[in-house]
Amino acid sequence: MNAKTEKKLKIALSVGLLLLGLACVALPFWYMFVTSLKPQSYVFEFPPRLWPTTPSLDNYVEAVNRDSFGVYFLNSLVVATATTASTVLVSAMLAYAFARFKFPGRNVLFYLLLLGMMIPPVMLIIPQFLVATSLGLREKLIGLVVVYVTMNLSMQTFLLRGFFANIPRDLEEAALIDGASPWQIFTRIILPLSKPGLATVTIFTFLYSWDEFPWANVAIKEATKRTLPIAIALFQSQHLTRWGLVFAASIIALTPVVIVFLVFQKYFVQGISTTGMKG
């Protein structure tokens, strides 16, 4: 076997493995989507079809209009958007301070901040419950936002600090000579050059706050304040035999995450490869 043939076999094997992995990931989502388009009488047909004979959006219409699903969706959207915006802003400022400014105890404070990455979130539910109760944050969406921001700060600050540390200092020094303030340097130079890192933080934070279940289940008991993960869990228990309806609700819940990823995906790979590598 010559080198050219061996190279072709390696490429074919790599492509085959990638297609197999893609099929393993995509087929369950495809089945869920196809089932959501079927009437209940065709959900368990055998053999299953790759596309329904008479596709219908009735399950989606019913899911949106049933059990205040739209209210839960809006609650999750408000919480996830506020959490993501707050986390990106605060973690970016913290990361820039740790990456550029020298002050007493900087390294100690940074390592203390990183302790937040080492503690499982489930262990913090009781302390969070006690603090939220004492501050009057239970049964409020703002209570979810505050907890989600604090849970994300450690990881996102760590990622952005490594990214900021790789930006040449010459740009900041030139801006200082021109009379720019630290805030102007941060907002007009550092942030525009950090789009891959900011995109990575945005995707991770939005995904966490959109899907988080344990704290939302503990902190919110009022029906009108529930978020979508709680609603999906209740929806599945109430309509377990109506898989078309359950899958339609799940597809709706996935839509914002897919949109956020598509918007930021061109920066995502670059951000993953460059954040957290130095600093």
Rank of each mutant, 00 (worst) to 15 (best):
L112K: 07
L112A: 14
L112Q: 11
L113H: 06
L115F: 15
G116D: 13
M117T: 11
I119K: 11
P120K: 11
P121Y: 11
M123G: 13
M123N: 13
I126N: 11
I126H: 11
I126V: 15
Q128Y: 13
F129D: 04
V131P: 01
V131D: 05
V131R: 05
A132D: 06
A132Q: 03
S134R: 14
L135N: 03
G136K: 12
G136L: 11
L137M: 13
L137Q: 06
R138L: 15
K140P: 09
G143A: 05
L144Q: 01
L144E: 04
V145E: 01
V146P: 00
V147A: 08
Y148V: 00
T150G: 15
M151R: 10
N152H: 02
L153D: 01
L159Y: 08
F163Y: 15
F164L: 06
A165Q: 09
N166R: 15
N166Y: 06
I167M: 10
I167R: 03
P168D: 10
R169M: 13
D170K: 12
D170A: 15
E172P: 08
E173T: 05
E173I: 06
E173H: 02
A175W: 07
A175R: 03
L176H: 13
I177Q: 07
I177M: 12
D178E: 14
G179A: 05
A180I: 07
P182S: 09
Q184V: 08
I185F: 02
T187L: 13
T187V: 10
R188H: 13
L191W: 03
P192H: 03
S194N: 04
K195T: 12
K195G: 14
A199S: 14
T200R: 04
T200S: 04
V201A: 03
T202W: 05
T202E: 01
F204R: 06
F204T: 07
T205V: 11
F206I: 03
L207A: 10
L207G: 01
Y208H: 11
Y208G: 08
Y208I: 11
W210I: 01
W210Q: 00
W210Y: 04
D211A: 10
D211K: 09
D211V: 03
F213A: 02
F213G: 02
P214Q: 09
P214H: 05
P214C: 05
W215V: 00
V218P: 00
A219E: 02
A219V: 07
I220S: 02
I220E: 00
K221W: 06
E222L: 14
E222H: 11
E222I: 12
T224L: 12
T224G: 13
K225I: 07
T227F: 00
P229C: 00
